[in-house]
């Protein structure tokens, strides 16, 4: 069986690694399964940690940072709603940086109406929180977009997010 490594997923992993992050706390979704597989196959020095819920993932990430690690949290956009109290009352006041990699639902190409309201709100929520975010516009841009977000987040002790739109992750 050949496992296909989508170029965008290789780019995301390359960017996370290049930003110095070796710990990825995640709640999985379909597109992120490709990223997880690339990490497992190509980046053996990256520790993958499953969380039961996105808010928990941010708590674990905060503890990793206190111990000297540079944490990434990977989540689906639907999980951003589950994360807001952790982001606003732990990461922000303590200046604990996390690189967020957000797999988008509810954007162009979505088939499930239940995903649309939150997906549409993601940009506005990050703006309301003053969390800088960037969108991966193409597979080719993934590595550099993620690396820059991570470098800036860890360098300035301010969390940042990278959005992975469905047209990039699913080609839809």
């Amino acid at each position: 069986m050949t496992t296909v490594e989508p170029a965008w997923a290789v780019g995301v992993c390359t960017g996370v690694h290049a930003a110095g992050s070796r710990d990825v706390v995640y709640v999985p979704d379909n597109p992120l399964s490709h990223v997880l597989r690339v990490f497992e196959q190509r980046f053996r020095d990256v520790r993958l940690l499953l969380a039961t819920r996105e808010e928990e993932a941010f708590g674990i990430a905060a503890g990793l940072y206190l111990g000297g690690r540079l944490p990434t949290v990977m989540l689906q956009s639907s999980g951003l709603g589950n994360s807001l109290n952790a982001i606003t009352s732990l990461l922000m006041p303590y200046q604990i940086p996390v690189l967020m990699v957000v797999s988008m639902r509810g954007d162009a190409g979505e088939w499930n109406a239940a995903q649309v309201p939150m997906g549409r709100a993601v940009g506005g929520i990050f703006e309301a929180l003053a969390v800088p975010y960037a969108t991966v516009e193409s597979a080719d841009a993934a590595a550099e977009t993620v690396r820059l977000a991570g470098k800036t987040a860890f360098g300035t002790r301010t969390s940042r997010a990278v959005l992975l739109p469905r047209r990039v992750t699913t080609g839809s």
């Binding site: 710990d23 706390v25 941010f58 708590g59 940072y65 206190l66 111990g67 732990l90 006041p93």
Partner: peptide, 25 residues
């Protein structure tokens, strides 16, 4: 002492992350 002022529920998660980052402690 790490006093949290918010993020109710996450103390054990923060502790878990730190324990993973620092197995010597």
């Amino acid at each position: 002492n790490f006093y949290t002022w918010g993020s109710m529920g996450l103390a054990s998660s923060v502790g878990l992350g730190l324990a993973l980052a620092r197995p010597d402690v």
